[in-house]
Amino acid sequence: MTEYKLVVVGAGGVGKSALTIQLIQNHFVDEYDPTIEDSYRKQVVIDGETCLLDILDTAGQEEYSAMRDQYMRTGEGFLCVFAINNTKSFEDIHHYREQIKRVKDSEDVPMVLVGNKCDLPSRTVDTKQAQDLARSYGIPFIETSAKTRQGVDDAFYTLVREIRKHKEKMSKDGKKKKKKSKTKCVIM
């Protein structure tokens, strides 16, 4: 069974824990209790493949930012979460993405942009803004509501699919490099 290491990042209060708990335990946590770091595991079937999701729910508070490099190193894919009623959390996505790329030393890291709290009427981040940002990053965008469960499975499952595509691409690139290195030079 394939294991996928997913990391949920975003500013404090955007609903990272609520999304994760909704996926794992099928219930909505409405009281806000700032996370330092929590880890969850769940076995699911995605596109006919049974897999184990190892999900790291991270601290959004700035005082825990020193811990970010460590979990970013171990993560295979990242859910970059903002709240649709919090423009600052949307603007912060850029910083999370840049930090992930720096730590992973790669421009090509599996990510999904997630606009959470889409059940709320007080939207300050337009869907088109988020779609445009995701398009500019070359990553999928999904709106979710941890409260109603809308888009929750889709967000995590899409990230797994992005990781699969990335692994497939990397193995193809690896095979191309191996083929090239088999060419021999004969000096007579």
Rank of each mutant, 00 (worst) to 15 (best):
T2S: 10
T2D: 14
E3A: 04
E3I: 03
E3D: 07
K5F: 00
K5D: 07
L6Q: 03
L6V: 09
V8Y: 01
V8M: 09
V8L: 08
V9M: 11
V9N: 02
V9H: 14
G10P: 01
G10T: 01
G10V: 01
G10W: 01
A11M: 13
A11E: 14
G12L: 04
G12I: 04
V14F: 14
V14K: 14
G15M: 01
G15H: 01
K16I: 00
K16Q: 05
S17Y: 01
S17W: 00
S17Q: 01
L19G: 15
L19E: 14
L19R: 00
T20A: 05
T20R: 00
T20P: 01
I21L: 05
I21D: 00
I21V: 10
Q22V: 02
Q22I: 11
Q22H: 05
L23D: 01
L23P: 00
I24T: 07
Q25R: 05
Q25V: 15
N26M: 06
N26H: 13
N26T: 08
F28E: 00
V29F: 13
V29R: 02
V29Y: 14
D30N: 11
D30F: 07
D30K: 11
E31H: 03
E31D: 10
E31A: 05
E31R: 02
Y32I: 04
Y32V: 02
T35F: 00
T35K: 00
T35M: 00
T35H: 00
I36K: 00
I36W: 03
I36P: 00
E37N: 00
E37K: 01
D38L: 00
D38G: 00
S39Y: 02
S39N: 02
S39W: 01
Y40A: 00
Y40Q: 00
R41G: 03
K42F: 06
Q43A: 10
Q43S: 13
Q43K: 11
Q43F: 06
V44E: 11
V44K: 10
V45F: 07
V45R: 12
I46N: 09
D47V: 03
D47M: 07
G48T: 10
G48A: 07
G48P: 08
E49T: 07
E49R: 09
T50W: 04
T50K: 13
T50M: 11
C51K: 06
L52N: 14
L52W: 14
L53I: 10
L53M: 08
L53R: 02
L53K: 07
L53D: 01
D54P: 02
D54K: 01
L56W: 13
D57V: 00
D57L: 00
D57Y: 00
D57H: 00
T58A: 03
T58Y: 01
T58D: 01
A59M: 02
A59V: 01
A59K: 01
G60I: 01
G60L: 00
Q61C: 13
Q61W: 03
Q61F: 04
E62Y: 05
E63A: 07
E63W: 02
Y64H: 12
Y64L: 08
S65H: 06
A66L: 06
A66I: 04
M67K: 03
M67N: 14
R68M: 07
R68V: 11
D69G: 04
Y71C: 15
Y71E: 15
M72D: 13
R73S: 13
T74H: 12
T74M: 12
T74F: 06
G75M: 10
E76G: 03
E76P: 02
E76D: 15
E76I: 12
F78G: 00
F78Q: 01
L79N: 00
C80Y: 07
V81T: 09
V81D: 00
V81Q: 09
F82V: 08
A83Q: 15
I84H: 13
I84V: 11
N86M: 03
N86I: 01
K88L: 06
S89R: 13
F90I: 09
F90S: 05
E91I: 06
I93V: 05
H94W: 13
Y96V: 15
Y96P: 03
R97E: 04
R97P: 02
R97W: 15
Q99Y: 14
Q99R: 09
K101N: 06
R102I: 08
R102E: 12
V103D: 06
V103C: 14
V103R: 10
K104R: 11
K104S: 12
K104Q: 12
S106W: 10
S106N: 11
E107C: 08
E107R: 08
E107T: 08
V109Q: 06
V109I: 11
V109P: 04
P110F: 02
P110A: 03
P110E: 01
P110T: 02
M111G: 01
M111T: 02
M111P: 03
M111F: 11
M111N: 01
M111K: 01
V112G: 00
V112Y: 09
V112R: 01
V112H: 02
L113W: 15
L113N: 05
V114R: 00
V114Q: 02
G115M: 12
G115Y: 13
N116G: 07
K117Y: 15
K117W: 14
K117H: 15
K117C: 13
K117R: 12
C118Q: 11
D119T: 14
L120I: 05
L120T: 10
P121D: 13
P121F: 08
P121W: 08
P121A: 09
S122M: 10
S122W: 06
S122E: 09
R123V: 09
R123N: 12
R123A: 10
R123E: 10
V125A: 09
D126P: 07
D126W: 05
K128A: 05
K128N: 06
K128G: 05
A130N: 06
Q131A: 06
D132F: 08
D132C: 04
D132G: 06
D132P: 10
D132N: 07
L133R: 04
A134F: 03
A134T: 07
A134Q: 10
R135Y: 14
R135E: 12
R135C: 11
R135S: 09
S136Q: 14
G138S: 06
I139C: 09
F141H: 05
I142M: 04
I142C: 14
I142Q: 02
G151F: 07
G151W: 11
V152P: 11
V152M: 10
D153I: 09
D154G: 05
D154T: 05
D154H: 05
A155K: 11
F156K: 05
F156M: 05
L159C: 08
V160A: 04
V160Q: 12
R161M: 01
E162Q: 10
E162P: 01
I163W: 02
I163N: 08
R164H: 11
R164E: 11
K165N: 07
K165Y: 11
H166Y: 06
H166M: 11
H166F: 08
K167E: 04
K167W: 05
K167D: 03
E168D: 08
E168I: 12
K169E: 06
M170H: 11
M170L: 07
K172F: 08
D173F: 15
D173Y: 12
G174W: 01
G174A: 07
K175P: 04
K176W: 05
K176F: 06
K177T: 07
K178T: 09
K178N: 06
K178F: 09
K179V: 10
K180D: 04
K180S: 05
S181P: 14
S181I: 02
S181T: 14
S181L: 13
K182L: 09
K182H: 02
K182C: 03
T183C: 04
T183Q: 12
K184W: 01
K184Y: 02
C185R: 13
C185A: 09
I187Q: 15
M188A: 11
